[in-house]
C-alpha cells in the first residue's frame, strides 16, 4: 500500500517544508544565564501584547487584517457562517402568514420537547389551509440541534443567525409565542437554500 503525499500545508508545497530545529540540549548559554536580559525580552513581548490590545480596546478594529485577537463584542460583531445554527424561527410569507401547516413533526422530533403546537384551519385564497393557532417555543429548553429544520417538509422553520438578546432575567420571558418567532422569507433565503443543499430536500420533486 502506498500513500501519495501530494497535499500542501497552506500554500507551501510539502517538499519545501523542513522540520523545525528544537533545542534538545537545555544547557543555558551565557546570555541566558545573565538572566536580566531574557527577563527584559519577555517583558517586552508581554508589554507589546498589552499595548496592542489596549489600542484595540480604545479603537475597535475592523476588517480582516487585524492584529488584535479579542472580539470587542457589543461594539463589534462577527459575521458568522451560513451553517451556524442560531435561534429557530418560523418562516413568514410575504402576506404575513406563516408557512407552517402544523403537522407536528418538529414537535415530535424535538429532543428537548421545546415545541408545542395547536393546529387549526383557516381560509386562504378560496382554499382551506392548516395553520398553527399557537406555536410555542420554550427557549429555555431549546438546544439548537436543528432537527426541526431538518424534518420540516414545508421549510417552515429555519435556524436563523440570531444569537443576541437571548439572555433574560426572568424565565417566563423565555417562552416564545408565534409572533416572536416569525421572520420574513427574504431574510432566511440563504439559510433555506443551504438547508436544501445539505439535506437534499428537493430530490423527490424531480423537475
Amino acid at each position: 500500500m502506498s500513500y501519495e503525499l501530494n497535499y500542501t500545508i497552506g500554500s507551501i508545497p510539502l517538499e519545501k517544508l523542513k522540520p523545525k530545529k528544537v533545542r534538545k540540549n537545555i544547557e543555558l548559554t551565557l546570555w541566558e544565564r545573565l538572566y536580566i536580559p531574557e527577563i527584559v525580552r519577555g517583558m517586552i513581548i508581554t508589554t507589546r501584547h498589552f499595548v496592542q490590545n489596549m489600542a484595540g480596546f480604545i479603537f475597535p478594529p475592523n476588517g480582516k487584517k487585524r492584529r488584535v485577537f479579542t472580539v470587542y463584542y457589543p461594539e463589534e460583531k462577527l459575521t458568522i457562517p451560513i451553517a451556524y445554527r442560531g435561534r429557530p424561527v418560523l418562516v413568514m410569507r410575504e402576506d404575513g402568514t406563516e408557512r407552517c401547516v402544523a403537522c407536528g413533526l418538529c414537535e415530535s422530533i424535538c429532543p428537548a420537547f421545546a415545541i408545542s403546537i395547536v393546529g387549526g384551519e383557516r381560509r386562504r385564497e378560496n382554499e382551506m389551509e392548516r395553520y398553527p393557532v399557537t406555536y410555542t417555543l420554550d427557549m429555555s429548553r431549546c438546544v439548537y440541534c436543528g432537527f426541526c429544520e431538518e424534518v420540516c417538509p414545508k421549510e417552515a422553520i429555519a435556524m436563523s443567525d440570531e444569537y443576541e438578546e437571548l439572555a433574560e432575567r426572568d424565565r417566563n420571558r423565555m417562552i416564545y409565542p408565534k409572533e416572536k418567532l416569525l421572520v420574513s422569507e427574504k431574510r432566511l433565503k440563504n439559510r433555506i437554500d443551504y438547508v436544501r443543499k445539505i439535506y437534499s430536500k428537493n430530490n423527490y420533486n424531480a423537475k
Partner: peptide, 29 residues
C-alpha cells in the same frame, strides 16, 4: 429542572452551549 428551584437566579442564558456573545449579553444584563 432548573436551578431556580434551589437558589435565586439573576440571569438565565440559554444555549447548548451558549455562544460567548450570549454570555456577554447576560453579563451586561
Amino acid at each position: 429542572q432548573g436551578i431556580d428551584t434551589l437558589i435565586p437566579v439573576d440571569v438565565y442564558v440559554p444555549g447548548c452551549p451558549p455562544r460567548p456573545e450570549m454570555v456577554i449579553d447576560g453579563l451586561l444584563k
